[in-house]
Design a protein around this nucleic acid. Structure first.
Length: 462
RNA sequence: GCUCCGGUGGUGUAGUCCGGCCAAUCAUAUUGCCCUCUCACGGCAAUGACCAGGGUUCGAAUCCCUGCCGGAGCACCA
């Protein structure tokens, strides 16, 4: 099986569907999985040189090893070879009609004058195309299908056209005569021994078009499945490579891994495992209709994977500083409630604590500072009232998270909805980059880096 | 205009080919309860769907027809 991306940028979330599904199938049936870059349009779908590796990184992040990687732009001589064979078999002719002219004729089911050209002349003319003797738009090679086919989409489609713009890959920059997707992909699927093809509904007619070429060569067409588009909820940004790229160029997003971007690089930076995405995508199946993927499904999968490994810490967003009198001068909540063996944290208390505005109890009311004890709000100051856990068990007071006013460290949490400033317990300032933690009552986050001034984290999900 | 394809709870999915075991599976979501020094994890429960109408049949989510709704192609894009 193959994934055949167009290398125009790093992948967005929707792109994960192809490797997810074919990876699963390849595993289940001991199949073979390759990535083939269909980069045969140096102009309107101009390949981005960085995208080749970026995409392979994304595939790796998702947890797949590719058995092979191909670039269509390396395989031009192969396509030319088959084109010559096709011409000799009477399956194609060169045509100099303009797109509009041909379209009109085609829609009326009428052949253009070039259709009658014999194989010999066509072959000679095709060599002139290959040699770059024509300019863009001057000449194309068409596959001779059925000009009266009831479906206009299948009538004599273009196999090769001239492109003046050189390909960005140096090794392919000298080619001017480029195959269209339907030809290139059809040849490759056969050449590479692809047995099952999955692609979008936008390519529904491709199999039928390519079928004409396969018939000329007497090949058997692979099994093919068409699936609908995936939409992912929870993102403001449109999910298309080009529009994400635009937002980055305009400075609206910091880059492909901005937490607000619906990209795989973004999810990766947020500490979401590729496996969680793959599971969700594989669960969508291959239905022909369009589907909506809820991010909550990915989050639920991820939470299940990371919960056990994620140590707990306190992080208070936008905290209110409240003086505290009485009680112990250090709190020691466990690193993980289910793993006492990992030990406890050590949080100095000091003169004041920070709590989130929503958690501040009313005057005369009590609240339990987790890991520390019960306090009462007396005229906007906390008075320690004891450490008897009974008040919590009986449901009399709520448990909240907190950090010391002085000893806490500045911490920024980047989320899909923007950045949150706050302060975290001292231990957070010691964590290594790439560690995934749970900020209690806030959510899971990945430690991105320790800056001079603050700890930067990326929010995964609650 | 011409051609293709699809419609199962909020979301995704199973079942549809070969009609009955489907008053419809599983997951997620939401809500409630239990557990818990987290609104995490775990456990339990509740909520909630076969697009509509005809037809065939003893029997239809499954077969047929019509309608409605949605998607896609008719590019010298992929």
């Amino acid at each position: 099986m193959r994934a055949a991306p167009n290398p125009n940028g790093p992948w967005h979330i929707g792109h994960a569907r192809m490797p997810a599904v074919i990876g699963e199938y390849a595993e289940r049936y001991d199949g073979w999985f390759c990535v083939r870059f269909d980069d045969t349009d140096p102009e309107t779908k101009r390949p981005d040189l960085d995208a080749y590796d970026a995409i392979l990184e994304d595939v790796e992040y998702l947890g797949f090893e590719t058995d092979a990687v191909y670039r269509a732009s390396d395989r031009m001589e192969t396509y030319y070879g088959y084109a010559r064979e096709l011409i000799e078999a009477g399956g194609a002719y060169t045509c100099s009609c303009s797109g509009e002219t041909f379209s009109e004729l085609k829609n009326d089911g009428e052949a253009c004058p070039h259709r009658e050209q014999d194989a010999e002349d066509t072959l000679a003319d095709f060599e002139r195309m290959v040699d770059g003797e024509y300019e863009s738009g001057e000449k194309v090679l068409r596959v001779r299908t059925d000009i009266e086919h009831k479906n206009p989409a299948l009538r004599d489609f273009v196999a090769f056209r001239m492109v003046d713009t050189p390909h960005p890959r140096e090794s392919a920059a000298h080619y001017r005569c480029w195959p269209m997707l339907d030809f290139q992909s059809g040849i490759d699927d056969h050449e590479l021994g692809i047995t099952h093809v999955i692609r979008g509904i936008d390519l529904q007619d491709s199999a039928k078009r390519q079928g004409f070429v396969y018939d000329y060569f007497d090949w058997e067409y692979p099994e093919v499945v068409h699936w609908g588009h995936v939409q992912v909820d929870a993102y403001e940004v449109p999910m298309s490579t080009s529009s994400i790229k635009e937002l980055i160029d305009d400075g609206e997003l910091d880059g492909w891994d901005d937490p607000r971007a619906p990209t795989l690089k973004s999810l990766r930076r947020r500490g979401i495992r590729g496996e969680a995405i793959v599971e969700a995508m594989a669960g969508l199946g291959t239905s022909t209709s369009n589907v909506d993927l809820a991010m909550s499904t990915i989050y639920a999968n991820n939470r299940e994977i990371i919960d056990d490994d994620s140590d707990r810490y306190f992080f208070v967003r936008d905290g209110l500083e409240v003086p505290l009198t009485g009680g112990p001068d250090e709190a020691n909540p466990p690193l993980h409630p289910d793993h006492a063996d990992r030990g406890d944290r050590s949080i100095p208390v000091g003169e004041t604590v920070l709590v989130e505005a929503n958690d501040l109890p009313g005057h005369g009311e009590r609240v339990w500072l987790k890991g520390l004890g019960c306090v009462e709000n007396i005229r906007d100051a906390f008075q320690f009232t004891g450490d008897d856990i009974e008040v919590v068990k009986s449901g009399a007071v709520d448990v909240i998270h907190w950090v010391p006013g002085k000893e806490s460290v500045p911490c920024r949490m980047r989320t899909p909805d923007g950045d949150e400033q706050g302060r975290a317990e001292p231990g957070v300032g010691e964590l290594d980059a790439d560690e995934v933690v749970q900020f209690e009552r806030v959510g899971f986050a990945r430690i991105d880096r320790q800056d001079d001034a603050e700890t930067v984290t990326y929010f995964a999900h609650d």
